[in-house]
């Protein structure tokens, strides 16, 4: 039986801007993924609990209020402890405050353990393509 990958989406921390992840969830479903949508104001631990419970393949989170670094420092380590070391971690949004170079944000969050980091505006089809290829590379998706 072909396994449908399970993807968790949500906006992390005290951030209630959830329109982006709602759109993303819809596109993911349209593309045949099983989606667990956590919406806005989701604490980092909840992503971990839900991922464990649903045996998820990837966590796609957004943050638009500039506190991502505070919310997500140590997130990858917590995933390892929870047995989620192989779960893909994607992050997108306004990740840092003030004027900064996008590359800096990308470098910083990749160092925190995120597999892919996206700027606030992206083509969702491109993100879905990245996800498919990463899942295939990890043997979590066929075809």
């Amino acid at each position: 039986m072909k396994k449908v990958p399970t993807i968790i989406t949500g906006t992390v921390g005290e951030d209630s801007h959830s329109i982006g992840t709602r759109l993303l969830s819809r596109v993911l479903r349209d593309n045949g993924f099983k989606v667990v949508e956590l919406g806005g104001l989701t604490p980092p631990e909840e992503f971990i609990h839900v991922a464990k419970e649903t045996d998820a393949d990837a966590i796609l989170m957004s943050s638009l209020y500039g506190m991502a670094e505070i919310d997500l420092t140590g997130f990858k380590e917590a995933c390892v402890e929870a047995g989620l070391q192989d779960v893909l971690l994607y992050l997108g949004g306004y990740l840092m405050v003030g004027r900064h170079d996008w590359n800096e944000a990308e470098t910083r969050f990749k160092a925190l353990g995120f597999d892919r980091v996206y700027p606030p505006e992206i083509d969702l089809d491109k993100a879905i393509e990245d996800l498919r290829s990463d899942l295939r590379a990890r043997g979590r998706m066929q075809g």
Binding site: K52, V80, E81, A82, G83, L84
Partner: peptide, 10 residues
């Protein structure tokens, strides 16, 4: 020690 309950076992 190591792993949360139901977490990393390896």
């Amino acid at each position: 020690a190591g792993g949360t309950d139901g977490g990393n076992k390896k």
